[in-house]
Structures are given as C-alpha cells and as structure tokens.
Nucleic acid binder design. Structure first.
Length: 775
DNA sequence: GGGCGATGTCATGAA
DNA sequence: GATTCATGACATCGC
C-alpha cells in the first residue's frame, strides 16, 4: 500500500512535469489546493473517521498541508471541500471525462515518455486508480487539465513532434478522436474555455471566502439555469429547457385530468367542433335558457345510431373516470360532499347552478379555455335537429314504481352521484316539466376548501387552521409556492419553528464544524503536527528525551490552557487537564512552578506553559526518558514503530510505557472519531426528519390540490349530466323527471335511462359486491 | 455540592 | 497471534 501511494504520488508529479514539458499549462497550486482532498484520499485512503483506514504513514501527510491524517477534522475538511466542489459544479455539466486516462493508456505501450521511466510513469493501473478516485467532483478540474490538452491537441501534429516526437500520427488521431468524443459526451466547450475557467476560479475564490454562496451566483451557467435555458455544449446556443416538473405538479396533474376529461367529451376530433370538456361550465345553458331550449331539444341519447358522435363511448369514458375517481377518492371527502345527510349544511352548499362560472382553479380554467365557445355546440340547433326516430327503442323504460327516493345511489348511478340526497328526498314524484335545478346554489369554494381541509384534519391529524394556512399558501400563486423555500412546517408552527431553528442550528453547527475544521486545518497546518524525518533528526539531535512540545503540542485538542484557546473558538470547550490520575512522580515535573519562575524570561514562561499542557503520558514518557515523542509512539506505522524501538536499548518499563502510550493514544483518537460519528449520525437523522416533514407537508398540499381538481371535474361532469338529462324527452316530448329517472351507465357501454328505484337496487347490489369480496 | 458536557481511559469484540 | 479500530462504560475535569 505504501509503495502504491508513493507510486501514485511520484507518478502524478512526473505526469505534471511531463505536461509542462509538452507545453500544457498545469496549475499545480490550484490543482493541489482544490483537489487536495481527493489527492489525499488517493494517497491516504478514503476517509479518516468512517473507515478503518490505515493512517500510519506519517510521511504521507503532504508537507504544507500538515493536517494530521487521523484528525477527526479531516472529514470535515473533506466534506467542506467536496460540498464546495459540488456547489461549484452546479453550473456546468458534470460528465466524467476519461481522455486523460485513455491518453496515458495509449501512450504507455509506446514507452515514449512514461516508458522511459517505467518505474514511476503512470501505468494503466495508476490511471485507472486515478479515475476511480477522482470521480465527478473532479471532472471540472480534470477538464481544466484537458483544456490544456485541447489547446494543443488541435495542432498536436505540429506541436507534439518536437516535444514528444515518439507520438505517432495514429496516436495523435486517437487523442483527437477521444477528445472529440468527450465533447460529444457533454463536456461542454465552456470547460475548455479559458475565460470561463477564469470565472470559475473567481467564483471559487468567492466561495472560499464564504460570501453568500447561493445568493451571489455569478456564473453564466447558473443564470442560464435560472432562466431554464440549456446551453448546447457544442454550439453554445441557449434554448429553453423542458424542465420536468418545472411547472408545478398540480398544474400538470390538472392537465392530465383535463386530458382525460376531454376524452370523455362527446365531441371527438372527428366532429367539426374541437372537444374541450373543460369549458362545459361556460357552455352550460343558464337557468333562463332551459325551458325554451329544451322544448326544442331532443335527447342526443335518442339518436344513437344516427348521431355522428360516439356518445355511448364518451359516456363510458366519462363513467369510467367517475368510477375511478370514486375508487381513488373513496374517502370521507366524497362522502361528505356527495352523501351527506339532508341536514348537512355542507351538502346543501354543494350544489352548482348550471350557470355558475367555475373559476375556482385558475390553472384548470386557463388550461381548458381553448375552443370553449364551440364545445357545447352539440346543443345548438344544427346538431340538435338531428333525426331521433329511434329514440323510444333505445330507451328501455322500466315501469316506474319508485317509492323510495331517499336511498343512496351507487357510483354508476349518475343521478345518485350528481344529485344530492336532499334533492332526491324532497323531489316531487310527479313529473315536472322542467328539470329542477339540483344545484340550487352556488358552490362555495371556501366551504369546499374547508371541507377538504377538514377531511385532511380528520384523516391525518392535520390541523385545520394550519391546513387553511397551507391552503392560502398555494392559493396565493397557483401552487408555485409548493416547493418554495418557505418552511412547509405549517403542520405546526411551533414544530416548524423548532424545525427551522434546529435546522439552522444544525446548519450552523455544521458550518461551525466545517469552519472549525478549516481553522483546525490551518492552525495545525501552521503549527501542528510534525511528522517528517527532519523532525526525527531534530529530535534525535536534541537529546535523549527529544521532546518537542513547542510545536507539536501547542494546538492539540486537549491539554491546553483555556486562555490560549481564544484564538481557536472551536476549542474553547476543550480545556481539560486530565492529569488527575497521573503518577505523583510524573506530576512532580508538571507541578506549578515556584513564584520565582514567573519572573523568568518569556522562554521559560512558554516552557512552563507547555510543560503544563503535557499529558500525563507525556509526563510519564519524559520521566521515563523515552527518547522519542509521543506522537511518534502513537502515529508511526507498526513497522516503523518497531524499527524505532529497535534502535534504542529500552528497559522493560520503558517498552511497557511506550506500548501503553501507543494504545491509549490510538484509543483516544478512536474515541474522538467515534464521538464525532455519533454526533454526525444524530445530525443526519435530524436532517432526515426535517426532510421527511417537508415531504409530508408537500404531499398534503398535493392532496389538497388533487381533491380540488377532482371536485371541479365532478362539477363539470355534473353539469354535463344535467345537460344530457335535461334534453331527454319521452314519447310525448316531455322531459323526464330526475326524481323518477336516472341515467345509468351499463356494462356494455350504453347509457340507459332507468327508473330510480331500479337504479337504487343496482347500486345497493354493487355496494354489496365489494363487501362480499372483502369477506 | 450536584448536574452536565467534554474528554480520556479501559475493556471488549471485530476485522 | 498481533495489531488496529469501534464502542460502551466509567472516571474525571471544568463550568
């Protein structure tokens, strides 16, 4: 593993040198700075906290980035960098590119450049490893490197030979092909554009400064995204993006419902009139119209054979939709709306005059406005004057013996579905020439909303007050605020506040964690862990003890004077002095210095201070004359550790202490990692809970929206039923009484006019069937 | 003086 | 079997 890491490191360096030799601009600093985590992960392993990674090679700490490989802050650093890269990558395509690797793979057999250094060149294995580790996050940076390639690849034939003369023409062609393939795969030209890259770097700087990452989004790609524009990767053209789900789902669903409803309209495209059932309400005759109009009308149902419109099929579709909806929304809502007892004010309110303009749902209305003026021209004189010779034969009129009109009607009973029970119960049995208006009043939208929300409250413990707030929310902008950043915690304001506060706290804690990570990183990078062989040399030259507390212990997470932690806010809470069970002999050296010592020079003061910061193990090591630092004891790989021990003639007590120090030190770091993991797990769970709450609120909003659209569709179907029923005439040309007859959808697709008693019986039978099935 | 959070340490099991 | 890591439990500290 160690050799492999060295292999990677050396290979990368030589690869960089190679690139510089052939004229490719390689910004090593930028690459190392922004890609440090992946590089470190390549070299050191995936992570420090969540995997049992062997972080024992002190020499792999990449001087200058001296964060301790076992530091629990390493993950914060990695996470912060990764998230930053993801944020930066939001405005550009992220297509993993492979041309660099392919290029290397191709070059290797040639033995041109890397082949000349077979021991350190990037082989297929190393390149693949690089590809695996870099991943999409690094695609941008890779692309930057590719940009260097692309600048030269076009004219590699002229440039390459002098520099890398062993590249054959086939190689160059292959490189060119691979590069073009990458462009075709979506590696947009912007990532090859130097000015664009400059912008990205500027953005990176801004982001690294932590200045309003989301608000100040200066990149063009983000603006294009904001405008729902897609930029063609090759042509650079911007075109409107068809964002799936860009419109709110409710509108989409309403359109879908409209489409279904349009399919039920008896005016197909074969007819001359564009079908749009959604405009029923506007074509429905007003109350003043029916008498005169109906006298001139004959039922379209009576003209089955002659009618150019497949009315039965349309009715079948219509009824299938109604049945489907009745099944899907077989909830208390429909029961409340349609089967409420006569005294129920809700049911009395649920009645719609034919001339009631239904503008409750703006999206539905607007989505169905087209061609509405002609939709119901079926009832225009031209259409209604169609021959109706076979009307009587098509109407299987069953002798009316209806006595009970109060029964509930099945779902296939249109009258039962459309006409409130109150109407049915109070309707006069005597035939009324005019179709009584079953929709005695205007449907109160607010009341309906309240019904739905009360239903929600009943079903899911949804507070009606909060639900009304929720309703207002999506009423305000036709659902555009469904996924707004506004906290959907209308479930409970207190809950929402706590949620938001917890969210903010978690985010703040996470941000503070990341900031602490970065600060820790910088701090430790400045004065922190020293692990180089130079240190070893220094220590060995320093004397037998070889202790270097000046820089190795100054910023450790413990054993610090709280007064010295002011520069490290995230360590303010870490100021414990766990020397409580220290051996008295070891403590002697750590005791408070005599007052005279305070008058010594600053050097002595610092030494005293650092002496006090020593852990008990360090004191013990010092007392036992251990010739190397505790850091080495703890962090050296076992091989080097044993080698180090073998260099010295140590007593049994010293060896025992060293092994104890190593064990305790490793366990201490393990405990820190473990606690950090626990904390992260809790925070993640907290975030998950918040996400779930948001999802729940969103689903509830969608449900309310669906119920509303369903309600409107039923209203339209109701109007259609009235229109059709109102135009039915018996042999004498008189309209049928809705209290005595009802339209029923038969199994064979036909629509029958049957007495209500029969319809009631059939409805009861159909109600029993599902119950029997359940049994 | 007790509660509480942070930290170190030990014991134990797993890899 | 040695080593390392993860984790529960406990002790101790400072606030």
């Amino acid at each position: 593993m160690l050799s492999l890491k060295k292999y990677f490191t050396e290979g990368l360096l030589q690869f960089t040198i190679l690139l510089s030799l052939i004229g490719v601009r390689v910004d090593v600093d930028t690459y190392l700075t922004s890609q440090l985590p992946p590089l470190r992960e390549i070299i050191l392993g995936p992570s420090s906290a969540y995997t049992q990674t062997q972080f024992h090679n002190l020499r792999n700490t990449l001087d200058g980035y001296g964060i301790h490989p076992k530091s629990i802050d390493l993950d914060n650093y990695f996470t912060a960098r990764r998230l930053l890269s993801q944020v930066r990558a939001l405005d550009r395509f992220q297509v993993p590119t492979t041309e660099v690797n392919a290029w290397l793979v191709h070059r290797d057999p040639e033995g041109s450049v890397s082949g000349s250094q077979p021991s350190s060149g990037l082989t297929l294995e190393s390149s693949s490893g690089l590809q695996d580790v870099t991943g999409p996050d690094n695609g941008v940076r890779e692309s930057e490197t590719e940009q260097g390639f692309s600048e030269d690849l076009e004219d590699l034939g002229a440039v390459a030979p002098p520099v890398s003369g062993d590249l054959t023409k086939e190689d160059i062609d292959l490189i060119d092909i691979l590069w073009r393939q990458d462009i075709d795969l979506g590696a947009g030209r912007e990532i090859f554009d130097y000015s664009h890259r400059q912008k990205e770097q500027d953005v990176d700087k801004e982001l690294q400064d932590g200045a309003e990452q989301e608000d100040t989004w200066p990149s063009e790609g983000a603006e294009a995204l904001a405008r729902n524009l897609l930029v063609d990767g090759e042509t650079g053209e911007s075109f409107p993006a068809q964002v799936p789900g860009g419109e709110d789902q409710t509108a989409l669903s309403l359109k879908e419902c409209l489409r279904l409803l349009e399919a039920t309209c008896p005016f197909g495209e074969n007819a001359e009139f564009p079908a749009d059932i959604s405009s029923i309400t506007e074509a429905v005759p007003s109350e003043s119209e029916p008498p005169g109009l109906q006298n001139n009308l004959l039922s379209p149902l009576l003209t089955e054979t002659e009618s150019p419109f497949d009315l039965e099929q349309q009715w079948q579709d219509l009824m299938s939709i109604m049945e489907m909806q009745a099944m899907e929304v077989n909830t208390s809502t429909s029961e409340i709306l349609y089967n409420a007892p006569p005294g129920d004010p809700l049911s009395t309110n649920y009645s719609l005059a034919p001339n009631t303009p239904i503008n409750q749902n703006v999206s539905l209305h607007q989505a169905s406005l087209g061609g509405c003026s002609q939709d119901f021209s079926l009832f225009s004189p031209e259409v209604e004057s169609l021959p109706v010779a076979s009307s009587s034969t098509l109407l299987p009129l069953v002798p009316s013996n209806s006595t009970s009109l109060n029964s509930t009607f099945g779902s296939t009973n249109l009258a039962g579905l459309f006409f409130p029970a109150q109407l049915n119960s109070t309707a006069n049995d005597t035939a009324v020439p005019e179709l009584p208006d079953p929709l005695g009043g205007l449907l109160d939208e607010a009341m309906l909303d309240e019904i739905s929300l009360m239903d929600l409250a009943i079903e899911e413990g949804f507070n009606p007050v909060q639900a009304s707030q929720l309703e207002e929310e999506f009423d305000s902008d036709s659902g555009l605020s469904l996924d707004s950043s506004h906290s959907p915690s209308s479930l409970s304001s207190s809950e929402g506040s706590s949620s938001s506060s917890s969210s903010s706290s978690s985010s703040s804690s996470s941000s503070s964690t990341s900031s602490s990570a970065s600060s820790s990183f910088s701090e430790e990078g400045a004065v922190g862990y020293s692990s180089d062989s130079e240190t070893l040399d220094l220590e060995e030259a320093e004397g037998a003890v070889g202790y270097q507390p000046e820089y190795s212990k100054f910023c450790r997470m413990s054993y610090q004077d709280p007064s010295q932690l002011s520069c490290l806010p995230y360590l303010e809470h870490v100021g414990h002095n766990h020397t409580y069970n220290m051996a008295p002999s070891a403590l002697d050296s750590a005791d408070l210095p005599p007052p005279s010592a305070l008058k010594k020079g600053s050097k002595d003061k610092q030494a005293d201070f650092l002496d006090k910061q020593m852990s008990r193990d360090e004191h013990r090591a010092r007392a036992m004359k251990i010739p190397f630092t505790n850091d080495k004891i703890i962090n050296l790989p076992v091989e080097e550790f044993n080698e180090l021990l073998s260099k010295y003639q140590l007593s049994e007590a010293q060896l025992s202490l060293i092994r104890d120090i190593r064990r305790r030190g490793k366990n201490k770091m393990a405990a820190q990692n473990c606690r950090k993991r626990k904390l992260d797990t809790i925070l993640n769970l907290e975030r998950d809970v918040e996400d779930l709450q948001r999802d729940k609120a969103r689903l509830l909003r969608e449900k309310v929206e669906f119920l509303r659209s369903l309600r409107q569709m039923k209203q339209k179907v109701q109007s259609l039923y009235q229109e059709v029923f109102g135009r039915l005439r018996d042999e004498n040309g008189r309209p049928y009484s809705p209290s005595q007859y009802a339209l029923q959808y038969a199994g064979d697709g036909s629509v029958l006019l049957i007495p209500r008693t029969l319809a009631d019986q059939q409805a009861r039978r159909q109600e029993r069937k599902p119950k029997d099935r359940r049994k």
